[in-house]
C-alpha cells in the first residue's frame, strides 16, 4: 500500500510543470523515506532528479518499495484538474498496481475529485552521481537566473558562464552580435532571497546549451533562490530547494577540441 497526502497540492502541479518538458516517461520510486525520480532527457545531455521527503506528507504510508511508471504528460493533464489550493492524495494498492489513484480535495472539503492514471512499465537507465565538491557555488534569485537565460537566448544557443572571486558573468555570442550580464556578489540582510552569494574554490569557465537551461528554469516557481554548482569540465548542477525536498537538474557542458 502506498498513500501520500500533500496538503500543498499546488506544489505537485508546479513540480510536474518543471519536469515535463525535459522528460516524457519516468518512474516515481516510492520508499519509506519519500518519493524520488531520476530521469535523463532523450539526448542524454541533461538529467532531472527530484526528491519529496515523507515528512512533507500528512500522512505518508509506504510499506515497501514501489516503482510507479508514469507518462508525465498524462499526469500533468490530470493534475491540471486539481485546484491550486487543493489537497492531493496519491494512492497505489500493491506493487502490481496498474494504475495510480489521485484525489483532489478543496480547502472546504466539500468537493472531492477522484482520478485514475494508468501506469506503464518503464525500463529506465539510472546514473550514479557522486557527491561532488564543486569549484564554484552560486546562490542567486531564481527569477534573475530565468531572466538571464531568456535574454541571452535572443543572442545565441549557448552561454559561457565565468565565475571569479566576486562576479559571475554570463556571455553569449551569435550571428546577430553578442551580449553579457555580470552579477556581483551582494548581501542583503533584510532580503537574503535577493542576494547573490558566490563561494569559490577556483575560477571556472564553462559553456552550456541555453535550450536546456531554459527548460531548467521551469523550476523557478518552486523556489525564490536557485543554486548553481560548477566545476571545470564537469556537468552543471542547477538546484531548486523546497521545504519538502528538492529538484536538481544536471547538464553536460560543451567542450572544445
Amino acid at each position: 500500500m502506498f498513500e501520500a497526502r500533500l496538503i500543498q497540492g499546488g506544489l505537485l502541479k508546479k513540480l510536474l510543470e518543471s519536469v515535463k518538458e525535459l522528460v516524457t516517461d519516468a518512474n516515481f520510486d516510492c520508499s519509506e523515506s519519500g518519493i524520488a525520480l531520476q530521469a535523463m532527457d532523450n539526448s542524454h545531455v541533461a538529467l532531472v532528479s527530484l526528491l519529496l521527503r515523507s515528512e512533507g506528507f500528512d500522512p505518508y504510508r509506504c510499506d515497501r518499495g514501489f516503482s510507479l511508471g508514469v507518462n508525465l504528460n498524462s499526469l500533468n493533464k490530470i493534475l491540471k484538474c486539481a485546484g491550486n489550493d487543493d489537497i492531493i492524495t496519491l494512492r497505489a494498492d500493491d506493487n502490481s498496481a496498474d494504475s495510480l489513484s489521485l484525489s483532489f480535495e478543496n480547502p472546504n472539503n466539500d468537493r472531492i475529485g477522484e482520478y485514475e492514471l494508468k501506469l506503464m512499465d518503464i525500463d529506465q537507465e539510472h546514473l550514479s552521481i557522486p557527491e561532488t565538491d564543486y569549484d564554484a557555488t552560486i546562490i542567486m534569485p531564481s527569477a534573475e537566473f530565468q531572466r538571464i537565460c531568456r535574454d541571452l537566448t535572443v543572442v545565441s544557443e549557448s552561454v559561457t558562464i565565468d565565475v571569479s572571486k566576486d562576479t559571475i558573468k554570463f556571455t553569449a555570442e551569435g550571428e546577430l552580435g553578442s551580449g553579457n550580464i555580470k552579477l556581483k556578489s551582494t548581501s542583503s540582510i533584510d532580503k537574503p532571497e535577493e542576494s547573490v552569494n558566490i563561494e569559490l574554490g577556483q575560477d571556472v569557465s564553462l559553456q552550456f546549451s541555453l535550450k536546456y537551461l531554459m527548460n531548467f528554469t521551469k523550476g523557478t516557481p518552486l523556489s525564490e533562490q536557485v543554486i548553481l554548482c560548477l566545476s571545470e569540465k564537469m556537468p552543471l548542477l542547477v538546484e531548486y530547494k523546497m521545504d519538502i525536498g528538492y529538484i536538481r537538474y544536471y547538464l553536460a557542458p560543451k567542450i572544445g577540441d
Partner: peptide, 14 residues
C-alpha cells in the same frame, strides 16, 4: 569546434 558532451562521459550507469 565546440562539442556537446553527454552525461555518461562523466557519470557511470548504475
Amino acid at each position: 569546434m565546440v562539442g556537446q558532451m553527454l552525461l555518461a562521459e562523466f557519470y557511470s550507469f548504475l
